[in-house]
């Protein structure tokens, strides 16, 4: 196809071939889009260094009240009741191993959930929507950035707690714990995709995100064992990846930790991965179709 300008000069339009379908070239293109999306957010992040530093130390600041409160209620570091419940009485190690994943719930709920909404704020959502890139790549780019960012915060949190309080962790348990963590993150990504779909419809979806975050925080055994929750809450926690992941990670990281939960945590998490990812993507595509049909994309 040719285009004629006002002076009558004919320009030949350059044909751009966009890879489509489940092909290697398309996968490469989508991976590139994910990477570029991640880089873009890092550039935005690093443009505000004070904000970046604050966000990096925030996991440590939010963890401190849990530890100090724990120490205050038992008057020391060892809780006999906790030992009776889970086999270990070291409250600092117990709370730390629980709290270090909380930031990653934020990755799913806030960072991924609001990746599309953020583009809307910046005024770039429509431009991105007309590119032949998958919308999911935008969300996954944000997920990649947020996971790295949160890992940095967790590393600072670990170093600070280790230096101030000391931690009794089993080094040999780190690798299996990381595997459990990876499985948990996959399910959380599925959850994050679902939240990002909700934020497209609800617009001011921060209430949903904050609500989900608070409920996940209660249903996950972050600062207490699952057994202290009412039975119905314990059952509800099994559909979230954080509860089995925390139990599994603690079993590998803390000596003498004896979880009450029976069953294979790896299989449990794998099942949750499949369910949450498929469900998240399904809802995301349904929302995408709905939002474009109703013309709500540019609305606030």
């Amino acid at each position: 196809m040719n285009l004629k300008d006002t002076s009558g000069k004919v320009h030949k339009l350059r044909e751009v071939k966009c890879p489509t379908g489940f092909t290697w070239s398309n996968i490469k293109a989508e991976l590139r889009a994910i990477w570029e999306s991640n880089i873009k957010i890092w550039k935005l992040d690093l443009a505000y260094p004070i904000s970046f530093v604050r966000q990096c130390i925030s996991p440590f600041v939010f963890l401190l009240p849990f530890i100090i409160y724990g120490l205050a209620v038992i008057g020391g570091r060892h809780s006999e009741n906790l030992e009776r419940l889970v086999g270990t009485g070291d409250v600092v190690t117990f709370v730390f191993t629980g709290y270090m994943i909380i930031g990653f719930i934020g990755t799913a709920v806030w960072a991924m959930g609001f990746s599309i909404r953020r583009e809307q704020w910046f005024g770039t959502l429509e431009s991105l929507y007309v590119t032949p890139t998958s919308r999911l790549s935008l969300v996954l780019g944000m997920a990649l950035h947020s996971t790295i960012h949160q890992s940095l915060g967790t590393a600072i949190e670990f170093a600070a707690i280790y230096l101030i309080f000391g931690l009794a962790l089993q080094i040999q348990g780190i690798l299996p714990a990381l595997l459990i963590f990876a499985l948990m993150m996959l399910a959380l990504y599925g959850f994050g995709i679902l939240v990002s779909a909700l934020s497209l419809i609800l617009k001011e979806g921060w209430i949903v995100a904050e609500g989900l975050h608070s409920i996940m925080m209660i249903l996950s055994p972050v600062a207490y064992p699952l057994i202290v929750l009412p039975t119905i809450a314990q059952q509800a926690s099994s559909v979230l990846p954080t509860a089995p992941a925390l139990v599994g990670m603690r079993a590998f990281l803390i000596e003498n930790y004896t979880p009450q939960v029976v069953g294979n945590i790896f299989l449990h998490l794998l099942a949750l991965d499949v369910i949450w990812i498929l469900f998240g993507i399904f809802i995301f595509y349904l929302t995408d179709i709905y939002i474009r049909k109703t013309g709500n994309l540019a609305k606030y």
């Binding site: 009240p65 849990f66 409160y69 724990g70 205050a72 209620v73 038992i74 008057g75 020391g76 809780s79 006999e80 009741n81 906790l82 009776r84 419940l85 409250v91 709370v95 904050e210 609500g211 608070s214 409920i215 925080m217 209660i218 972050v222 600062a223 207490y224 064992p225 202290v228 929750l229």
Partner: peptide, 27 residues
């Protein structure tokens, strides 16, 4: 929702102390 933010502290206290009162806390 602010109530949801302090529920973990209540559950944490119960799990660590094994009851609703703590003598160490009282000191």
């Amino acid at each position: 929702f602010p109530i949801f933010w302090f529920i973990p502290f209540i559950l944490q206290g119960e799990a660590f102390v094994g009851g609703l009162q703590s003598q160490s806390f009282a000191e």
